[in-house]
Design a protein around this nucleic acid. Sequence first.
DNA 1: ATTAATGTTCAGAA
DNA 2: TTTCTGAACATTAA
Length: 280
Amino acid sequence: MPELPEVETMVRGIRPFVEGRTVKAVLRCRCSCKPISIRPRLELLAKRLVGRRIESVRRLGKRVVLGVSDGSAVVIEPRMTGLMLLSDPPDRLHLRIEWKFAGRAKYNSIWFWDRRGLGTVRLFAPGELERTLPANVLGPDALLMDAETWRERCRKTSQPIKVLLLDQRKVAGIGNLYASEILHVAKIHPAKAAGRLKADEIRRLSEATREVLEEAIRDEGSTLGDATYRTALNRNGRYQNKHRVYGRGDETCPTCSEAPIRRFVQAQRSTFFCPVCQHR
DNA sequence: ATTAATGTTCAGAA
DNA sequence: TTTCTGAACATTAA
């Protein structure tokens, strides 16, 4: 499930083989499943991109953005199971789009692979991305948040802090897995109202967010047992080995060794926490 | 064999 | 305005 660390890993993985290169072709991969959402349709997308250079590869929240030489931008949204790959997809059946580049390097293509097919690919005209995703739609990046920004974002809301962490308008990049991990490190109960967090809880939240996300990036993200996330070069992430609570219901808390991790549902998603470390 | 669960985003309802 | 629910989809486990 690509969240900030996984998307950052994809971006860093493909960047050296994409930036500065000219698009030679954009191809639909043969795939018997329902087609994913591509706007404009693939033939038109190809026409707009072929012959142009990709000047930048960056991450916007949980999205991958390819900056094109004419000022337009390709935005890839992996959602649940989407991956950006340089080679070796988990299977060929769910390859969706291939971008081919002119010239010869170690890798001359990138692919968007997506098993469930909930991912999307969109071309934004110059300036359109800034208009479509203004600050009130996409909050500040989780890695750039300081304690003061956290305080402002959490103000005056009864939203449980775990639910707030998932709200991309409040803060961009955190998903279900890292929300549980961050709150455990910060020692904050996931159901606590964000607006009632004390100053030192806000400080811990700010520090835990950076700590968890940066370490997860160093470990190239989390590859769960039944999930399909891999790096651009078909490696497993390693951060799953360091998960403290996510997916560890009934296991003893690694921090206090005093209680089993508990699972409950918030906003229709699983939340994991330690009732001792994260009291009240 | 059917059903639930998985977790991100958006449309539409409350 | 804000908050919530269901749908999009494919696969696996129960």
